[in-house]
């Protein structure tokens, strides 16, 4: 564990908590892509199957349980409890365009052709693009509430901080996982445009609004 990894994890944790609290307290999931949330649930479940096979640490297990739990709580709030506030019309990204290529890629490029390893690899590939329906939704509506922007910023920062963690681990521990690194770069790059808008607008107290 190093400071970059810990910051990344805390940023990730903050993101999922912000999202659940935002939906719960405003009693609304307007502006949130249910499709991205479904993809994240798939990511967590397929990646954290090792919860039942490998024990790493109490920290590791607790975080995994929280991520899976928060993800399912979000889906329950969006598709059941506050269903009426879910903005279907703007959440029109076709997730099969992300699922099919990531499944195929995981079957082709993995470290070991075992069920757990292929599912882990699939979850890494899928996570790198899982935010696209959400970014697509923001671009369709042309704006995002500031709390949604904070959520996106925390969620995007997490993989960026992991990149620093991987650089550190490469030098300090001679440890690297190429699949995670390349996917992490892709994932972080997808947020760049958003980061720019967040820093230039949201942090200056303005609403995140895309140029017309």
């Amino acid at each position: 564990m190093n400071i970059f990894r810990l910051s990344g994890d805390l940023s990730h944790l903050l993101a999922v908590i912000i999202l659940v609290l935002k939906i719960w307290t405003t009693r609304s999931c307007a502006g949130i892509s249910g499709k991205s949330q479904i993809l994240f649930a798939i990511v967590y479940v397929t990646r954290y199957l090792d919860l039942v096979t490998t024990f790493v640490s109490v920290y590791n297990t607790s975080m995994k349980v929280i991520f899976i739990g928060a993800s399912f709580a979000t889906i329950y709030l969006m598709y059941s409890k506050f269903k009426a506030t879910y903005d279907h019309n703007h959440d029109s990204f076709r997730i099969e365009f992300l699922l099919a290529p990531t499944v195929i890629l995981a079957l082709l490029i993995n470290q070991k052709f075992t069920v757990l390893e292929v599912l882990w690899t699939f979850s890494i590939y899928l996570e790198s693009v899982a935010i696209l329906p959400q970014l697509f939704m923001v671009s369709k509506t042309g704006e995002a509430e500031s709390i949604t922007s904070h959520y996106l910023f925390a969620l995007g920062s997490y993989r960026g901080l992991y990149l620093l963690n991987w650089i550190y681990r490469y030098y300090a521990e001679d440890h690297y996982e190429l699949i995670a690194i390349v996917s992490g770069i892709v994932q972080t790059v997808l947020y760049c445009d958003f980061f720019y808008l967040y820093i230039t607008k949201v942090l200056k107290g303005k609403k995140l609004q895309l140029p017309a």
Binding site: R5, D50, N60, Q111, E177, A180
Partner: peptide, 10 residues
């Protein structure tokens, strides 16, 4: 190593 069996990250 690149063929590390346990993925210790989240």
């Amino acid at each position: 190593s690149i063929f590390n069996d346990s993925h210790d990250e989240l």
